Computed example of a mutant assay.
Amino acid sequence: MLISVVIPTYNRLPILRKCLDALENQILNVEIHSFEIVIVDDGSTDGTVDWLKNNIETFPHLRLFEQSHGGPALGRNLGVEKSKGELIVFIDSDLVVDKFFLRNHIDSLFRAWKKLGNRKCFTYGSVINTSNFSNPNSEPFKLQDLSWAYFATGNVAIDKKLLEKSGLFDNSFRLYGWEDLELGERLRNMGVKLIKCPRAIGYHWHPALALDQIPQLIRIEKERAKMGLVFYRKHPTLRVKFIIQYTFIHRCLWEILTFGGLINTKSVRPLLAFLINNGQSGLAMELLRLPLNLIGVRQIFREASLIGLR
């Protein structure tokens, strides 16, 4: 059986190199005859494509494709289209997997197929967040790493024909967020089962919080709000409203927790700086999530009002 690992990437070259090294060092089982790594570069400007082409012999499983910058949904769809495998494994380009990653996904899928009598399921692995670039695999699992998402493409494996039957990703999700969970809603409606696969471990690297990241984090929250409404308009259910935080419960919650916005990205900067300077960037990020959530919720209500959505 051939496995296709599909990875869209955009300006992530340093961590992408670690991602590829980890994939090339997989310890496989007899069911996996081979695998390919399908990289779709989404218009990177950091030299990703040139570096990959110049080092292609280092990565014998790699196949590289390019597209103009159009977002991860478009990239994943191109990756699936170009893939040759019977199974698709999605990971992000800032994920460093352990050496039994593919083996554990496939073992769990095979057991589930046998139990169900069909292939209407997907496996969802563990994602451990880390800011340790030199040794991301050393990070222990934390309470914050728990995820309640149904289908998050940071670490999933699924039958290719089943994925194609679902219609793949919606290319209208061109900004940050929700394209994978929206596909998950369609899979759920098809009766596709989620199979937890905690032993398929990926370490999601992101740089430790620095104050100069705050404008970008604000931009991401506003993009998530816009894409959240695209998600809701396709699936106008109460459950999706809760997922994207488009409820008055969420609006009241974040207004209360930030004292009506008194706790904001400007007022917390001195405390964030103190925490960061004392090696507590993780705690600083958790504090920053309070005003960021308020920004996101306010933005989604503002966007909904502009388009007359209730």
Rank of each mutant, 00 (worst) to 15 (best):
S34N: 13
I256P: 02
K99R: 15
N277I: 08
Q280A: 12
N155G: 02
G154W: 10
F151P: 01
E31G: 06
A273F: 10
L292Y: 04
F133S: 03
T9V: 15
L102Y: 01
L187K: 05
L62D: 05
L309C: 04
V230R: 14
L217A: 01
L62S: 01
D212W: 10
R289D: 06
N55K: 04
E57P: 05
E303I: 08
A284T: 02
L211S: 05
E57S: 12
T9G: 06
S34F: 02
V192E: 04
F259W: 03
E81N: 12
S305T: 13
L306V: 10
Q26I: 10
W51F: 15
Y150C: 04
P198W: 05
N277H: 14
K82Q: 14
L23D: 03
D94T: 10
D212N: 14
R119K: 15
S68A: 14
D170P: 01
F100S: 03
R251W: 06
R269L: 11
D212T: 12
R103D: 13
D92R: 03
V5Y: 02
N277R: 14
Y203R: 12
W178S: 00
E81T: 13
V38C: 03
R289P: 00
L306K: 15
Y232K: 08
E182D: 00
D159S: 10
I220T: 07
K142L: 13
R239F: 08
G202T: 07
K222I: 12
G125I: 05
K165F: 07
H206S: 11
K160Y: 08
L162E: 04
K99H: 15
I300Y: 04
I106R: 12
G202I: 01
R239E: 15
L95Q: 09
I201P: 04
L162R: 10
C121V: 13
D21Q: 11
L13V: 08
H235T: 11
I7F: 04
L183W: 06
P8V: 02
D98P: 05
V6Y: 04
L211I: 14
D170W: 11
Q67C: 13
V49I: 13
L20K: 01
L294W: 02
K18C: 06
P14S: 09
K84P: 02
F248D: 11
P72T: 14
L78K: 11
Q280Y: 14
I214C: 09
T48H: 00
F242C: 07
F231G: 05
R298G: 14
I195R: 02
K115L: 12
N132M: 09
L283F: 14
P60H: 01
T48C: 03
W113F: 14
V127K: 06
L13K: 12
R239V: 08
P270E: 08
I106Y: 08
A304D: 09
H206P: 03
I32N: 08
K193G: 03
